[in-house]
C-alpha cells in the first residue's frame, strides 16, 4: 500500500464517520425533546456535514481519479463505507443518542487534537477548524450526560441502557491496521493506542460524575476498517443515496 492509498483510506474513515453520524443527528430534525435542543442538534449535524465535505473533497483529490466528494458520498456501497460502527447505530431514544454522541465526541476530541499536528497540511488545517467545533459538541454532550445520568430515575436508567447497548461498538474506534501503521510512520496520523488511553480516562470520569456505571461487558465488535458494518448502514445509505442513484445523469 502506498502512502497516498493509505491517506485516501484514512480520509474516508474520518469523513464517512462524520457524514453518517451527521445523518443520524439530522433525523432528529423537528422531533427533538424541546425546541432549543432541536436547534442544537441541527447545529451539530451541520458541523458534521461540513467536516465530511472537507474530508471527502480532500479524499477525492488524494485519490486522483476524477471523483468528487459527492461521488464518494453518494455512489459508494455499504462495503466501501469506512465509518465507525458506532456512528451508524440508530438514534433510539434521546438518551441513546446522547450516549452515542458522547462516546464519539470524546474520541474525536482527542483524535483531532492530535491531527492538528499532522504532517499533512490539509489534514492539519481541517483538524484545527473541526477541533473547535468538537470542543463545543463535547461540552454539549457532556452536560447532557450529567443531566440525564443524574437527573431522574427514568433518565438515569435510559442513559445506562444506552451506554450498555452501544458499548460493544467502542473497540472498533481503536482498531488499527496497515493504514494506520503507514500514516503513523509518516507523522500524518496518531497512534490510536494513545487516543484510547485519553478516551478511557475521560469516559470513566464523566460516567462516574453522571452517577452511571461503566459497562462491564468487553467491547468486541469491529469491522469498519474493512467495511463490515451492522445491518443499519444499508438502510441509511439507501435513503441518503436514492436521488443521485435514481437519476445518474442529473445535476442538482
Amino acid at each position: 500500500m502506498t502512502l497516498e492509498q493509505a491517506k485516501f483510506e484514512y480520509l474516508l474513515r474520518l469523513g464517512d464517520s462524520s457524514l453518517i453520524i451527521g445523518h443520524r443527528l439530522s433525523e432528529w430534525c423537528g422531533h427533538g425533546p424541546i425546541l432549543e435542543e432541536d436547534i442544537a442538534l441541527i447545529n451539530i449535524a451541520l458541523d458534521f456535514v461540513g467536516n465530511a465535505t472537507s474530508l471527502l473533497t480532500y479524499a477525492a483529490q488524494v485519490e486522483g481519479k476524477g471523483r468528487t466528494e459527492d461521488d464518494l458520498a453518494y455512489l459508494r456501497n455499504e462495503r466501501d463505507y469506512r465509518n465507525l460502527l458506532l456512528t451508524e447505530q440508530p438514534n433510539g431514544d434521546y438518551a441513546m443518542t446522547i450516549a452515542r454522541q458522547f462516546l464519539y465526541d470524546v474520541y474525536t476530541y482527542f483524535l483531532y487534537e492530535e491531527l492538528k499536528n499532522s504532517k499533512d497540511e490539509t489534514i492539519a488545517a481541517i483538524a484545527v477548524k473541526s477541533h473547535k467545533e468538537i470542543t463545543y459538541h463535547l461540552r454539549h454532550t457532556t452536560e447532557w450526560m450529567y443531566r440525564l445520568g443524574d437527573g431522574t430515575e427514568e433518565s438515569h436508567q435510559r442513559l445506562q441502557n444506552g451506554l450498555n447497548e452501544l458499548w460493544m461498538f467502542t473497540s472498533d474506534l481503536f482498531d488499527m491496521d496497515e493504514v494506520d501503521a503507514i500514516l503513523i510512520k509518516a507523522g500524518i496520523a496518531p497512534d490510536l493506542n494513545k487516543i484510547k488511553e485519553a478516551w478511557e480516562k475521560r469516559v470513566k470520569e464523566v460516567v462516574a460524575e453522571a452517577t452511571l456505571q461503566l459497562p462491564t461487558s468487553i467491547a468486541k465488535q469491529k469491522g469498519s476498517r474493512e467495511g463490515k458494518h451492522t445491518e443499519h448502514l444499508g438502510y441509511l445509505l439507501a435513503e441518503m443515496q436514492y436521488l443521485p442513484r435514481t437519476y445518474p445523469t442529473a445535476k442538482w
Binding site: 424541546i34 425546541l35 432549543e36 436547534i39 442544537a40 447545529n43 461540552r139 454539549h140 452536560e143 443531566r147
Partner: peptide
C-alpha cells in the same frame, strides 16, 4: 430570550439561537 434548565444550557442555547 431562551428557555433552559440551567445557566450552562442557557448559554449554549443562546449561542445556537442568537449567534448562528
Amino acid at each position: 430570550n431562551v428557555h433552559a434548565a440551567d445557566a450552562e444550557m442557557a448559554i449554549q442555547n443562546a449561542r445556537d439561537v442568537y449567534t448562528r
